[in-house]
Write a protein that binds this DNA or RNA. Sequence first.
RNA 1: GCCCCCAUCGUCUAGGGGACUAGGACGCAGCCCUUUCAAGGCUAAAACGGGGGUUCGAAUCCCCCUGGGGGCACCA
Length: 513
Amino acid sequence: MNDYSKPARTRFAPSPTGHLHLGGARTALYAYLLARKTRGQFLLRIEDTDRKRLVPGAEEEIMQGLRWLGIQWDEGPDIGGPYGPYRQSERKEIYQRYARQLVEQGHAYYCFCSPQRLEAMRQEQQRRKEPPHYDGTCRRLDPVAAERRVAAGEPHVIRFKTPKEGVTTVRDFLRGDITVENRTIDDYILVKSDGYAVYHLAVVVDDHLMKITHVIRGSEWLPTFPLHGLIYRAFGWEEPTWVHLSVFLKPSGKGKMSKREAADLMKDGYSIFIKDLRGLGYLPEAVVNWIALMGWSYDDHTEFFTMQDLIEKFSLERLNPAPAAINFSKFDHFNGLHIRALPPEELARRVKPFFLERGYQVDDQRLLRIIPLIRERIGGLDEAPDMAGFFFKEDVVPAPEDLVVKGLNVAESLDLARRVRKVLEDLPDIRAEVAEPFMREFVAQSGLTAGQVFGLMRVAITGQKVSPPLFESMEVIGREKVLQRMEQAIHLLEGLLQSEEPPSKSLDTTLES
RNA sequence: GCCCCCAUCGUCUAGGGGACUAGGACGCAGCCCUUUCAAGGCUAAAACGGGGGUUCGAAUCCCCCUGGGGGCACCA
């Protein structure tokens, strides 16, 4: 059991080599939740010791993504903190100092093998169907001689001197003890020839120095986990609680998402990259709720969670070590839930940019009035302009065919449109509670169905076959414009009638169905 | 090839020896509501990978197999 009464110090330690994705976001989220729950600290550390793989702008994108999700760090490269710097490229000397300590204590050694020799060695091992590993040539060097070669400026790396006998047991919080034979652990490189530490050294040194209590990271680290335990022990440091999260699988459940597949998702309006999600109409609240539940659960029925809920209810014990397939349709479901949970003013504020983007002039008062009409009808914020753009248009242009009522021909539809206009003109008030009873009365007398009459009005007034509720929409649009649009519909139907005039008629109904 | 991890409906999961005729959610199908589309309500179909143990009793504990996943760099 984990002790939640003690403040936890957790961290998210991404390398700025690409986009922040769902998996990374979830790792960050869990670490953040644990820190907040225990009133501890959550820190952001950038693991950028590989100079070759740096992607410009990646660090900034990661920070923006986390902020958008509502994951705020207490210490980090931008805001500093008592254990900085928080960028590993700025901690080069620290790692070298600790690496040297390891060498002096006999836990590591200098290695002068060239990359070419290493490569040839690996190929030979593969040919013999052996697992690739360092052959230990420099491990057998005389330490004093090696020291002299280093002092002379000879290129070198520092390798960890893994015990060759016995086993190493490390404890993962979710999986319990993991034991491996030491001979399967390679003499990993700790410091590269360019002087930068590799992950294995840097992560141990930083987590110790930064007083991290819980290392929450992806399960891709499981294979080198015993090595990390060995390094802690070589230093004589107390180990943190290790929590290796499961990986996310592609929706099919077969393997990780490839670069190509990730890109293809955009065609369906989905993405695994956090940066894309806002533009696709997703709420950060929905993202958080959704990813929190992929690998964690609270009980057998609660699924709606705000960040506050999660902070209160999160626990490491309820994490699931099994891999989880990404389920985008559930994502859509959560998005709908959170859209409907937003106060109207807030939903208006969130949806506004999507209207502006499409070139609509948005009147805030009017936008607020249509929110109740669309909040149950949009699965994503991006759908709002399609559903409700007509509220902000001067004119709508219905397709004339859409004005032909189901079950009626053009002439009959035109006649209906004229009668509807008359009723509308005589309406004492355009407000829904007044207009609707009048129109229903009209429907009753007409011998037609509500669907036929209201369908015609809907297309005429909104320009769409699918729209928010008709009478509420008319109220927002206003009497003047409603009549104007009915008038236009009549003209369109007249035009349609003329164009099909002489020989053939009655194609319309079949077209409609 | 070697090492490590995982295993309940299609998917996310609850379950940690008897409360299991295995619960919830998404999706799917049907029905209700309804002026369209949604939202909402109700109903249905849908799972313990296989084989051995342990036990009076196993989805739950152990072993093997199978399947899936991850890793084997001077990347993280």
